[in-house]
């Protein structure tokens, strides 16, 4: 198993640190040649417009798309979830590139500005009874999912905040900012 963390922009070091803590070496992925060396990829939190632009510029969209969910397991957190979604709502003026590999619609900045960022426990049955600590920062929201996508986690309001489609997974919150490594472990089993 070779785990890569997309390191174009965002909190990739936080993911690398969680992986290190659970004894998994990972690789920073900035160019297509780095991608060839990995079979799992985490897309971190950050700005989806920035990461999308750099993915396009450095010709990584097609190589990721070709392998996503097959010999490349992928997990996107926050901006990463936006980049994975087939449909993105509230895109920047003129649109923005993405990977469009998971059958779901995601709305950017769904809760408002930074003043509406929040923390709330998440019910995530696959990880046991103890709720996850959810950190939501200018977070997107999974508005709808297709038949091949399974909801993994939700808020008390019922809003889906984690979803899985085979070997692809999206979370709109940031497990890498908490001390809880259960979601990282779950991804490594995908």
């Amino acid at each position: 198993m070779k785990v890569g963390v997309l390191a174009l922009q965002g909190d990739f070091r936080e993911h690398i640190e969680v992986l290190r803590r659970i004894g998994v070496q990972s690789l920073e992925v900035r160019l297509p040649k780095h991608l060839e060396a990995v079979d799992r990829l985490i897309i971190p939190g950050g700005e989806s417009t920035t990461i999308g632009r750099l993915l396009t510029l450095y010709k990584m969209i097609d190589p990721i798309r070709a392998r996503a969910g097959r010999d490349l397991a992928i997990w996107g957190t926050c901006a990463g979830a936006i980049l994975l979604a087939r449909t993105v709502l509230d895109v920047k003026q003129g649109g923005q590139p993405g990977l469009e590999v998971m059958d779901m619609a995601v709305r950017r900045n769904a809760y408002g500005s930074q003043l509406d960022s929040f923390e709330q426990p998440i019910d995530f049955p696959a990880l046991g009874d103890a709720p996850l600590h959810g950190v939501f920062i200018r977070a997107p929201q999974i508005e709808s999912v297709g038949p091949s996508v399974r909801a993994l986690g939700s808020l008390p309001s019922g809003a889906i905040v984690a979803a899985q489609q085979g070997r692809m997974m999206a979370t709109t919150f940031h497990p890498e900012l908490t001390g809880d490594d259960r979601v990282h472990r779950y991804f490594l089993e995908l």
């Binding site: 390191a7 174009l8 922009q9 965002g10 909190d11 990739f12 070091r13 936080e14 939190g45 950050g46 700005e47 920035t50 926050c78 901006a79 930074q114 003043l115 509406d116 960022s117 929040f118 923390e119 709330q120 950190v135 939501f136 920062i137 200018r138 940031h174 900012l177």
Partner: peptide, 20 residues
């Protein structure tokens, strides 16, 4: 639900890392 916590304040800056 807790709004505007220290974690979310520091967290937004963490999301800006590696950026301009």
């Amino acid at each position: 639900m807790e709004m505007s916590t220290w974690t979310t304040k520091v967290g937004l800056a963490q999301m800006l890392k590696g950026g301009v």
